Simulated scan of single mutants.
Amino acid sequence: MELTNAAALNLVISGDYIHHVSSKKEMNKSDWYENRIRWRARKHRLDAFFWEAFLLSNSAQAEEIAGVLKDYGTPTLVFWKNSDEWTVRYQRCLGGQS
């Protein structure tokens, strides 16, 4: 099957699957959300709460969070008090335990 340039823009190939995407805007929506969250966090000097920083400094706790909230994707921000009280900010939702 031969695709025209316009049709090719509406397909996203990931692994062995081809997903139809209605527009380029929709393809970048998740990235936009994450960039917006990070921009706002930096503006308020919350860089220390980024997932990557938490993962490097608290790998055991990061594995605990990843196990509990595995269906929501990769976290963006983590606010950790202890293993009984924490909040995680994803691109489109919040998760936590208290």
Rank of each mutant, 00 (worst) to 15 (best):
E2F: 11
T4L: 10
A7I: 00
A7K: 10
L9R: 07
L9E: 04
N10W: 06
V12Y: 04
G15H: 07
D16W: 05
S22C: 14
S22H: 13
K24C: 04
K24M: 07
K25Y: 13
K25P: 04
M27E: 13
N28W: 07
K29W: 02
K29V: 04
S30I: 05
D31M: 07
D31Y: 09
Y33V: 02
E34Y: 05
E34G: 00
N35E: 03
I37R: 08
I37M: 06
R40K: 02
R40F: 01
A41I: 11
H44I: 05
F49Y: 07
F50P: 13
A53W: 11
A53G: 08
F54L: 13
F54Y: 12
L55E: 15
L55D: 14
L56V: 13
N58F: 00
A60H: 15
Q61V: 14
E64F: 15
I65N: 14
D71C: 03
T74E: 02
T74L: 04
T74R: 01
P75A: 09
V78H: 14
W80M: 02
K81R: 03
N82I: 01
S83L: 09
D84T: 06
V88K: 12
V88F: 11
R89C: 12
R89F: 10
Y90V: 03
C93G: 05
L94I: 10
L94A: 08
G95Y: 09
G95C: 08
G96A: 13
S98I: 01
S98G: 02
S98H: 01
